[in-house]
Amino acid sequence: MTSPSVPQSRTSFHLALLVAFHILVIIASNYLVQLPIKLFGFHSTWGAFSFPFIFLATDLTVRLIGKAEARRVILRAMVPALIVSYVVSVMFHEGRFNGLAALGEFNTFVFRIAFASFAAYVLGQLLDVRVFDRMRRGYVQWWVAPAASAVLGQALDTLAFFGIAFWRSSNPFMAAHWGEIAAVDYAIKLAVSLLLFVPMYGVALNAIVRAMKRRDAVPAAA
């Protein structure tokens, strides 16, 4: 599957949109990871269903704009995401709206989650970029690169997040179950990525390529 590159004049605009999208997904995931669910008898969180969106966006960025620009998105998003994630997570701690007054006291539990998300995001995304870029150059099949980057990138992301956030946590439930939750969380994210987001990657890339070819054909026809 071949794809034209994004015009240089539009690159800055696309990067700004991607940074905003990454920050939005991180904020949502940090909130949703505080909401536990049970699937087939195993403990997990709703955050498992939201974070794979970032990997989809990163893979499309590498394919269409390049790995250097994808890394630039990560570097621009990580600090704002850390700050905003902490603010939102404190205000909506444990799924309840606590108001602006909650920000008056530093919440070490929530900050640990926000910092874990920060570290996991940086490590997982940088590995995703590296694996995706390497695999897409070595394999003709379009699905190999997004599948391989999802397997490895999300494994590192999940281990880093849950290990940093909940190992010996002040939350008894998370301290006791974080290993189980991390394993189930990874299984869910991997299943969602391979069954939904890898096909979505193919559909989105084809749609973008067709749109860009039509755009390039207009001046030539004129």
Results as ranks from 00 to 15, higher is better:
residue 128 D to F: 03
residue 43 H to N: 15
residue 123 L to Q: 03
residue 116 A to Y: 13
residue 76 R to P: 00
residue 45 T to D: 12
residue 76 R to V: 09
residue 142 W to Y: 10
residue 115 F to Q: 07
residue 128 D to L: 06
residue 102 A to Y: 13
residue 128 D to W: 02
residue 102 A to P: 15
residue 43 H to L: 15
residue 63 R to T: 09
residue 47 G to P: 11
residue 136 R to K: 14
residue 73 V to A: 12
residue 140 V to C: 11
residue 133 D to R: 06
residue 112 R to L: 12
residue 86 Y to N: 07
residue 48 A to Q: 09
residue 123 L to C: 13
residue 39 L to Q: 10
residue 139 Y to T: 13
residue 43 H to Y: 15
residue 106 F to C: 15
residue 103 L to E: 11
residue 113 I to H: 01
residue 69 E to K: 14
residue 78 M to C: 08
residue 68 A to Q: 06
residue 124 G to F: 00
residue 50 S to P: 04
residue 130 R to T: 10
residue 93 H to I: 07
residue 56 L to Y: 03
residue 81 A to R: 00
residue 98 N to F: 02
residue 56 L to G: 08
residue 28 A to P: 01
residue 118 F to K: 03
residue 33 V to P: 04
residue 139 Y to M: 05
residue 118 F to A: 02
residue 127 L to A: 08
residue 96 R to K: 11
residue 81 A to P: 04
residue 90 V to R: 04
residue 86 Y to M: 09
residue 98 N to Y: 01
residue 105 E to M: 14
residue 101 A to P: 02
residue 103 L to Q: 13
residue 69 E to G: 05
residue 116 A to V: 09
residue 91 M to V: 05
residue 99 G to D: 11
residue 76 R to L: 15
residue 84 V to W: 06
residue 57 A to H: 11
residue 138 G to Y: 05
residue 55 F to A: 07
residue 65 I to A: 03
residue 123 L to P: 02
residue 51 F to M: 14
residue 109 F to T: 15
residue 37 I to P: 01
residue 113 I to T: 09
residue 126 L to W: 07
residue 90 V to I: 10
residue 28 A to C: 05
residue 116 A to I: 08
residue 82 L to R: 05
residue 55 F to I: 10
residue 120 A to W: 08
residue 41 G to C: 15
residue 93 H to N: 14
residue 62 V to M: 06
residue 79 V to C: 04
residue 49 F to W: 04
residue 135 M to V: 12
residue 43 H to F: 15
residue 110 V to P: 03
residue 138 G to P: 04
residue 58 T to Y: 04
residue 93 H to C: 11
residue 141 Q to E: 13
residue 128 D to R: 02
residue 129 V to S: 01
residue 141 Q to Y: 11
residue 90 V to E: 04
residue 37 I to K: 12
residue 29 S to A: 10
residue 114 A to R: 03
residue 61 T to I: 08
residue 104 G to I: 14
residue 135 M to D: 08
residue 97 F to Q: 08
residue 82 L to M: 11
residue 132 F to Q: 01
residue 135 M to F: 09
residue 66 G to S: 06
residue 53 F to D: 12
residue 126 L to V: 06
residue 61 T to H: 02
residue 122 V to G: 02
residue 94 E to T: 10
residue 107 N to K: 06
residue 40 F to Q: 08
residue 105 E to F: 13
residue 86 Y to T: 12
residue 72 R to H: 13
residue 53 F to C: 11
residue 134 R to V: 07
residue 71 R to N: 06
residue 115 F to C: 01
residue 30 N to I: 03
residue 117 S to I: 06
residue 28 A to W: 00
residue 104 G to L: 15
residue 78 M to I: 00
